[in-house]
Amino acid sequence: MNQATSCRMPDNLKTTDGSERRVGVEIELSGLGYEQLVTLVAELLGGKAVLESRYVSKVDTPLGYFIIELDSEPVKELALADERLPQSIRELGGQAMDVIDAAAERIVPLEIISPPMFFSELEPIEALVESLRKAGALGSRNAIYFAFGLQLNPELPDLQPATLVRYYQAFALLYDWLKALHQLDISRKFTPYIEPWSSRYTDLLVADDYAPDQHEMMVDYLETNPTRNRALDLLPLFAHLDKPLLDQYVKDPRIKSRPTLHYRLPDCDIDNPEWHFSTVWNDWVVVEQLANHADDLAELRALFRESRKISLRNLTQNWQETSAKWLHSKGYV
């Protein structure tokens, strides 16, 4: 695999207990039938598939269990197997279910959910994406109702508030740069679930003296972002840190507790031969690197604060351009 399509590793590859960090990957796509996708994933990853429930399969691979599902609870929960129903109803309903299935597979995303994988194990995901493209997988650009994403759930090196704040700051500073690269499809631009953090919170976050404890850190975020619908969703992390506090602001059964960030911004442009999983991952690694280089992080925070002021320079150059030039000048990209 050449350098352009290989997954870079961040400098900070270990957790505080010395184990390699892990990341979960979620890929939304269409263009393939459900059973076809399950079969392909099993073949490509050397695994064995087992149907867990309607439109949910588990594939046992050397990397762990991958879940393949249709990303729609109402369709997954449809069932006519209840023997209390008259046979005539079950037979008629079965024909309707065939129509529902055919329609659902065209307009509802199929989703591949990886197990937590070591950062160094990600190359098979790159190969999987390339193979699915060749098999006919489709991404966001193919229909206005497609709003498919590629999501990352990177484990953090530790859960100390100072570490978490550095990661939040790095993402906030690079949001415009990342969005220009990876959130291109019009169907996702008009959906609410990849919004930036509130401007008020970002201004608080990038102050040089911002050093909250865990409780203050969570409250500051939740006061202005009490929703899953953010490009970097912190609610799974907060559920892990302090579920009772999170429940005071947001109660949603879809929030899964985990010691990770939930990066939701990138499109899944899987049928574009110029698009690669590794590109999405490598741009996330830029966030990682910035978060772990204190002097650079402080310098970019100062530039960001300056960009918020009214000036002739700020009227002629936006933050996305400024941050992109800064990253190039510092050798991050």
Rank of each mutant, 00 (worst) to 15 (best):
V41S: 08
P212W: 00
Q248A: 09
L152A: 11
F118M: 09
Y193G: 11
I107H: 12
V23G: 05
E28D: 07
N292M: 11
N314D: 06
T260L: 03
W275A: 15
V108M: 07
N2S: 14
A104N: 02
T260N: 03
V25C: 10
K330N: 02
D82K: 02
D296C: 11
G47M: 09
L261Q: 01
I186R: 10
D295R: 11
I107D: 13
R166M: 07
A49P: 06
D185T: 14
D185G: 10
R8A: 13
Y201N: 00
E130A: 15
R90Y: 04
P236V: 04
S199R: 10
Y34D: 09
L235T: 02
Y249H: 05
T322S: 13
P192L: 12
A180D: 15
Y55H: 14
L246F: 02
L297W: 09
I113C: 02
L181Q: 11
P266L: 03
L303P: 08
L297D: 08
F277Q: 10
F66I: 05
R258P: 04
D209T: 13
Q36N: 06
N282M: 06
G24M: 11
G136Q: 06
P253S: 09
V38R: 11
E155K: 03
A104R: 00
I186V: 13
L13G: 07
F190W: 11
S114M: 12
N282S: 03
W319I: 00
F238Y: 14
D220R: 08
F118A: 13
V206I: 15
Q289A: 14
A239L: 01
Q36F: 04
Y201A: 00
L45N: 05
L181N: 07
R254T: 12
I100M: 11
E321W: 11
S187W: 03
P86C: 03
D296R: 09
Y210C: 05
V99Q: 09
S88R: 12
E73V: 09
K189T: 08
Q248C: 12
K48N: 07
N229Y: 15
D213S: 01
N314Q: 10
L80K: 00
V219W: 07
Q160N: 11
L32Y: 07
L40P: 05
A298C: 09
D296Q: 12
V286D: 06
D269T: 08
I107R: 15
A180R: 15
P212Y: 00
S311L: 09
R21V: 05
T5A: 01
V108W: 06
D11I: 10
S19R: 12
G64E: 01
R22D: 08
L29K: 09
N292A: 14
E52H: 12
L80Y: 01
V56D: 07
